[in-house]
Design a protein around this nucleic acid. Sequence first.
DNA 1: ATGAAAGCGCTAACAA
DNA 2: TTGTTAGCGCTTTCAT
Lengths: 349, 349
Amino acid sequence: MTQPDVQRGRHQVPPTLATVADEAGVSRQTVSNALNNPDLLRPETLERVQSVIERLGYSPNRAARQLRTRSSHLIGLRFEPAQEGTSNALMDRFLHSLVETASRTGHHVLLFSGDPDNPLDGYDDLLRSTAVDAFVVTDTYAGTPQSVFLEERGAPFVAFGRPWDEPDADHAWIDVDGAHGARIATEHLLAEGHRRIAWLGWERSSRIGQDRRSGWQSAMHAAGEDVRGLGVRLTDNVDAARMRAHELLQDPSVTGFVCASDTLGIGVLHACADRGLRPGTDIGVVGFDDSLAAQVTWPGLTSVRQPLEQVAVELVRILHLVLAHKQIDTKGQMLQPALVVRRSSQRSG
Amino acid sequence: MTQPDVQRGRHQVPPTLATVADEAGVSRQTVSNALNNPDLLRPETLERVQSVIERLGYSPNRAARQLRTRSSHLIGLRFEPAQEGTSNALMDRFLHSLVETASRTGHHVLLFSGDPDNPLDGYDDLLRSTAVDAFVVTDTYAGTPQSVFLEERGAPFVAFGRPWDEPDADHAWIDVDGAHGARIATEHLLAEGHRRIAWLGWERSSRIGQDRRSGWQSAMHAAGEDVRGLGVRLTDNVDAARMRAHELLQDPSVTGFVCASDTLGIGVLHACADRGLRPGTDIGVVGFDDSLAAQVTWPGLTSVRQPLEQVAVELVRILHLVLAHKQIDTKGQMLQPALVVRRSSQRSG
DNA sequence: ATGAAAGCGCTAACAA
DNA sequence: TTGTTAGCGCTTTCAT
């Protein structure tokens, strides 16, 4: 009897390489080869071993493998504490894609938290304990201390987000072209016949905000429109946007709004409702990030959608190159967002 | 010179227990004790070892520790592919709390994906490879094949969600009392003076939906109100809700709506707008889940908020008991949601 | 094509 | 209180 006593009620002890080897009548090494270098085995041996593996439901012990190969097949991602009101749905969509993509190459995503005031901790610990193979760094909006830190340590990582303040940063990154997003949003409104199009964005300190704003600006310039007095900076908040929209709408020539977020876009829609203006017909409004709120709000908010699925795919692809110490074609890669048109910007809606 | 050659450009080789032991002039075991059983060391030895650990930036290798202790300090969570339009913001908030809470006891969250058609895969693999210590099962809305599977395997896990179809399930679970949520929502509308209050919910097949519906029903009964013709089942979709709301609003005595989701609630708000009815003043509307959409939509949608932070805390607490094979006080624990009142339900708004 | 030996870094059990 | 020994399950190297 090779069957060990069933430990009653407790979890079963998983079979090991040795169990499989005994059962198949080969050495442990041969089983290992069946898994990692199947070509080395004679077809009949391979088949025999594989059937035993199948029958026993054997899976290599990760800890042992990790200890030996120094590879955990884990990708670390720092998951910031939720910020109420922030479009964290974005993160959700991205995370799904990342988990999905990583799983296709047998990798899992390890989430860790960290003190928001200390953007480095968490990374250091995982690195020293060799818990993860690599990191995906997402919070580059706040500057890039993590990237600098990880670079110094020679730790493998890829960033979602440009190294805004580090022109000579030496790591791989993927980002979404926010300027392009704002540009196509603005061009869309121009095509709908709007001329005086306002920008509602964040404070100057936000690099992402500045980038998006520049897209609006360049589209307006290209159309020969003057932007003076049309660019507004405020906090990401419905009521703030609503109030500023009211101010802008006192000038009846202003009929278009491009916003740095859906939250701000919805604030503009509120202002329209207050004034009895019909979104789409009278006023064109575009938001940013294509959140659930943009989809369900009345009458549907046109929004710039980031290709997060594609970001995840590229991120994982580059990560594999980095881990293999392969040459990377380009340090940085910019992906283009797309406009999701809804009734808030369609005159013929 | 104990300092090894610095490998140029590549990631540094982290120090091991042996390095620390040499440096501190003690045995490896003593260093291990300094970490895991500090009480065993003489204070001066402890301090010496700790200072070396500090200086070298030593952290125990996780794989080695895991191999030895058979504990990875990893909690597995299956992260379903995003469902467009679903309130996945809920998941986001929950996940943040879980990661945060788990980290307080040195645990990390491992995300894995799985084919939606095969709710079991992913679990099996991680279990057999002993990659995680335990699971948190969240997708119990779809029945509980995972719970049954994990129970059979004797795998440690805790569920977020009741074992709806398994009255004699033997695992620990935490859930939010959806019936209570709908009840306080209904009572709130009754208190605002509404009498004929409709229910917009999901198909009968949704256990969560049925549960929430029962809360509306019981509150109406308690108030002596007849619910005939007031309970409606539909898909979770703004336009569907809007259309059904129009049908219900043809009866002018209907002035209140309790909904199984914010999406449905927003559909009702749209119907009100169509008919020139003022939410709050003319019609009281309550949604469910307190999503970002509920917060930003005009004029603010009153909603039932789940205590997800508390769920995460309890989940982790119970998980530790399960892992320690300790007795659990109660198999299941129900947490109460709270009503977040906004203008969609306030007459004096 | 298959097997034997060694060792990754750690901790449990025991000895001193 | 500290040190010694053994071994977790796997893969790499070398021998057959």
